[in-house]
Nucleic acid binder design. Structure first.
Lengths: 225, 225
DNA sequence: CCGGTTTATTAGCTTCAGCTAAAAATATTA
DNA sequence: TAATATTTTTAGCTGAAGCTAATAAACCGG
């Protein structure tokens, strides 16, 4: 069975939990506190919800030990992320949204929209593989392109890299967008200054730019062969 | 103040009540029963909600006497209807939805979408004045084109009429759409049979069609000068 | 104008998803 | 390792928005 719709439609907050867990679960289990912070919800509420999510089979959870998604939970999270990214793409490319406003709107819409809407939208958009931040869009069958990118701040001097995606922090996006730091751009790292982490890069036209580490940590790149 | 956004975002069920009241309020106050049926909700729940809606200033309500929208309630209802019809237009014209599926999706989306989304979508669609059923789309300032159409079943023999809108009953829409009974079409009424209410019309190409009264009551027309 | 039918309301309960405050478990550090 | 700090859980509450069952008002036919 590929990507079966959940029996009962999941409430929007359930989806928020799944996404939050998915996002911060690169390293195993996720703590109550972490979830509570991502969702701006009291820790006690998180505990509560985790118990329920476990009963629903979406999460594995052990008291005082944190939570992780089950296969089913992961599938549901990826479905939401697919929706989110497709919707973002639509808002940015067709409705002229600014990067600042997209995220919030997409966040709300992704919980409301049906599978039919999602797939028709995908069709309308020409089945994009990435959203405009460069983040890969999970496929209908729950497949997600492996992500081997790393922060620009970790690239050594002399490296040639291509921007893969940019973090989706609202104010940062605007800043990066204005400077043309968008996915697909190829840069050569000229210098990484030990002292303060300032990194200097050169674009294809020979222009050079310098960024502090807060920026460099939010621009993800991959090596260019 | 033109169309002020409500202080707190209204929950989706509140919107459902407002729309339900608006829709069945051509003749003054709306009864608890009527609302209860439109929304498939127990009468007791309706009473409950009406009290709250009154406290919020969206509805005028007197025990045992029914409810009517206040100016504020009406404005909110029209805002939702504007959203609904714009969304329907998008789903039908750009995502290739069938008339059957549009309504449900639009119903859910209209509660989620922001004003910004609505207006950007209106822009994207070229600020249409009517949705694809022919129903007028309320303007941003809450203005709604007066509707002087009447059911085809009430048009006397010999009348020349233009289809203005078609009822949005799901199965009916498909039926009508297949026969090209869409808004804008001009027809001449040839005969209205007393006995069973069957009405025979001729289109501009000289083709004739006959419809029983269930259909004829759902096709709204205006006289053609 | 009285009695029955229909429609509305009240009272009291349920579920969801949050909250606070207090208690318990785990982690850290002196 | 003991004391302190941090994190997590438990217990119990809140507010929406629904529900049922019982009661009350309004309407209607004889």
């Amino acid at each position: 069975m590929i990507n079966p719709a959940p029996a009962r439609p999941l409430s929007s907050s359930i989806g928020d939990y799944l996404k939050a867990i998915w996002t911060s679960s690169e390293t195993g289990a996720v703590s109550t506190k972490e979830i509570s912070q991502t969702l701006s919800v009291a820790p006690a509420s998180v505990t509560n919800m985790l118990v329920r999510l476990q009963e629903m089979g979406l999460v594995r959870y052990e008291r005082y030990r944190g939570a992780a998604l089950t296969e089913e939970g992961r599938a549901e999270a990826l479905r939401l992320i697919r929706r989110h990214r497709l919707i973002e793409t639509f808002l940015l490319e067709h409705l002229g949204y600014s990067w600042q406003h997209v995220h919030e709107e997409a966040e709300r819409l992704e919980h409301t929209v049906s599978d039919e809407f999602t797939e028709r939208l995908a069709e309308f958009l020409g089945h994009p593989g990435h959203d405009p931040h460069g983040a890969p869009i999970p496929a209908v069958d729950g497949t997600l392109e492996p992500d081997d990118s790393f922060p620009l701040s970790d690239a050594g001097a002399g490296r040639r890299v291509r921007i893969y995606k940019v973090g989706d922090d609202d104010s940062m996006l605007e800043y990066l967008g204005e400077r043309g730091l968008v996915p697909g751009r190829t840069l050569t790292v000229k210098e990484v200054r030990e002292l303060d982490g300032v990194i200097t890069v050169e674009d294809e036209g020979g222009e050079t730019y310098s960024f502090g580490s807060p920026v460099a940590r939010r621009v993800f790149v991959r090596p260019v062969p």
